[in-house]
Simulated assay, not measured.
Amino acid sequence: MKPCMLLLPLALAGCLQTPEATSPAASAGASAEAAANATSTTGSGLLSQYHWQLNDAIDSKGRRIDALFVGTNRPVQLDFSADRLTVVNSCNNMGADYSIKKGRLRIGPMVSTLMACHDAALAALDDAIAQRLKGSLNVNLLARGDTPRLQLVTDSGDTLSFTGVPTAQTRFGGPGETAFLEVAAQTVPCNHPLIPDKQCLLVRERHFDEQGLVTGTPGAWQPLDQAIEGYTHTPGMRNVLRVKRYTVNNPPADGPSVAYVLDIVVESEKVGQ
């Protein structure tokens, strides 16, 4: 079978990568501006330490906004960097600049890719998000306990409630190291004392410069006897992944001292049998 290659931009400078009913946040909840002021040395603040996953959305009359809930396993997610808001799990990659002033989240013009989605509900999700994530929204952040909550209220009265899930950087206590791993199309047998006939990914390290051009010589192929968080392997597909590599502090005796978290898939190829 003739190989079919799909090459995606490396985007080395960065990339665009899950219900309970809630009421408006109580006054005891800290405002997002106050939370943002309690920043780390990078200035990213509490917002950037979590993936914010939509768990509830109601309009001004208390009715659930069903258009915002398309995939039960892939809820709409907001990721914040120092000054950039990215929407995850929509039809297209979406993002905008943002700022927080006096308890208001001000969102700049939303920028989106133009990919066509065949699922009508998923295609409509982009519009449903863009209609609500624009202009100035009232923002409340309840940061008590292990699970922070974020609430955005539009001027029209729509209330969007999000649950915070710690980012990998938060969980592992540091920014991690960027690396590129090429994953072979087929897994290989590997030894495991508790799992007979275990199959492992076959990987080798790759190198690219800031323009996304290949540099150096690929590393040696070797089995990877652990998962890459966020990556699901499809037999017959060779992939090049941009990953974040984190040091695991105090790993268990039988656990790895390094964790790999998928950033983006930069290259995919279907390999013939």
Rank of each mutant, 00 (worst) to 15 (best):
A168K: 11
P251F: 04
L142D: 15
T41V: 14
S60K: 13
T217N: 13
P148M: 11
G95H: 07
A259T: 05
N55W: 04
T232R: 14
L105I: 03
V240P: 01
L142T: 07
T217D: 13
T178C: 06
N55I: 11
D155Q: 15
R144I: 13
I228F: 06
A28Y: 07
A26P: 03
G230W: 01
Q211Y: 03
P3Y: 02
L160V: 05
T154D: 01
E210A: 14
T215V: 15
A82W: 06
R242W: 00
P24T: 10
G103A: 11
Q226D: 06
S257D: 13
S23R: 12
T147W: 06
L16T: 07
G108T: 05
R144Q: 15
E269N: 01
E210F: 06
D225C: 08
E229H: 05
E210N: 05
A38I: 03
S156N: 11
E177S: 12
G219E: 09
P19L: 12
G216Q: 06
L194D: 11
Q226H: 12
A30M: 14
C117L: 04
D225G: 12
A179T: 12
L213W: 01
K102R: 14
A57H: 04
L141F: 14
G95K: 02
G174H: 09
W221Q: 07
L141K: 02
A179N: 09
V240W: 05
K134Y: 00
E210Y: 01
M110W: 00
G230H: 09
T167H: 05
C200I: 10
L181Y: 07
G272K: 01
C15N: 08
S112M: 15
V240G: 02
G236K: 08
L68V: 05
A32C: 15
V243A: 10
N140E: 12
C15A: 13
W221S: 10
A82C: 12
A184L: 08
P193I: 10
A130F: 13
L114R: 14
R238Q: 15
N250D: 14
R132C: 03
A128I: 00
I107P: 00
R238I: 08
S268W: 00
T42D: 15
A11F: 06
A11E: 14
G108Q: 09
N239E: 12
S136K: 05
D59V: 02
A32L: 11
L105H: 06
S48D: 15
A259V: 01
S44H: 03
P223Q: 14
G62P: 01
A185F: 03
Q151N: 15
A123D: 09
A34T: 12
D59R: 05
S90W: 02
E269Y: 00
R144M: 14
N89F: 07
R106H: 08
N93M: 10
L213E: 14
V266R: 02
D66P: 01
P256M: 04
L68Y: 11
C15M: 03
L12H: 04
I195L: 14
A67N: 03
M110H: 04
R63P: 00
K61Y: 01
D97W: 00
M237P: 00
N37T: 06
F69M: 11
K2R: 08
Q222V: 09
G255S: 10
A96Y: 07
N89K: 09
G255E: 12
L141T: 10
W221V: 06
V139G: 05
P218L: 07
T147E: 13
P235G: 09
P252G: 10
T42W: 13
M5I: 12
L181P: 04
A185V: 08
G216F: 08
E182F: 05
R63I: 04
P148R: 11
